[in-house]
């Protein structure tokens, strides 16, 4: 059985496809993958990428290329909550490395890994998310959390189901 795109994903693809000239449907790949990843608890499978390729009439390799190129897409199974701690310059100067270390020891995993219960995925490396004024910061499931302390981090992580 091959993967069937949900109605929402198809609407999303059509929405983006319509914004590009005819024959440039390749431009809708990123938004298609985002939509699928969102539905699929944080990662996309080869089967799903094939479905996107088929829907957009593209060679499958062109979808694989996009999915593997961008760090926003996970192509292996990961925990359902995406935790990305910025370690770029401003956050680093404001103690991002301590936050990472704290989270790693709290969850018992290193960056790039998921917790055994499939709850949290700690992103391998996160570059600047343009919230330097609130450094150190992290993004949890697309939501920004700024001016972090370890206590706040504990609270946020414990609040995830």
């Amino acid at each position: 059985m091959s993967y069937v795109l949900s109605g929402h994903v198809r609407d999303e693809i059509e929405h983006w496809k319509a914004r590009f000239p005819e024959g440039r449907q390749r431009s809708a790949v990123i938004s298609a993958l985002h939509a699928i990843q969102h539905e699929n608890h944080g990662y996309v499978t080869a089967e799903q990428m094939n479905a996107v390729a088929e829907y957009l009439d593209l060679p499958t390799i062109q979808v694989y290329e996009v999915a593997t190129f961008y760090s926003m897409f996970q192509t292996e199974e990961v925990g359902r909550h995406n935790v990305a701690i910025c370690t770029n310059i401003s956050c680093m100067l404001r103690g991002a490395d301590d936050i990472v270390e704290h989270v790693e020891s709290k969850l018992g995993i290193t960056t790039g890994e998921s917790t055994g219960d499939g709850r949290i995925y700690l992103k391998k490396e996160e570059e600047c998310l343009a919230a330097c004024c609130g450094a150190p910061m992290m993004m949890v499931d697309h939501k920004y959390h700024e001016n972090l302390t370890t206590d706040q981090v504990d609270e946020i992580l414990d609040g995830l189901d």
């Binding site: 060679p59 390799i61 062109q62 694989y64 290329e65 593997t68 190129f69």
Partner: peptide, 10 residues
């Protein structure tokens, strides 16, 4: 006309 090889990752 049959692209099967590509560049993955970066």
């Amino acid at each position: 006309g049959k692209p099967q090889l590509g560049t993955t990752d970066r």
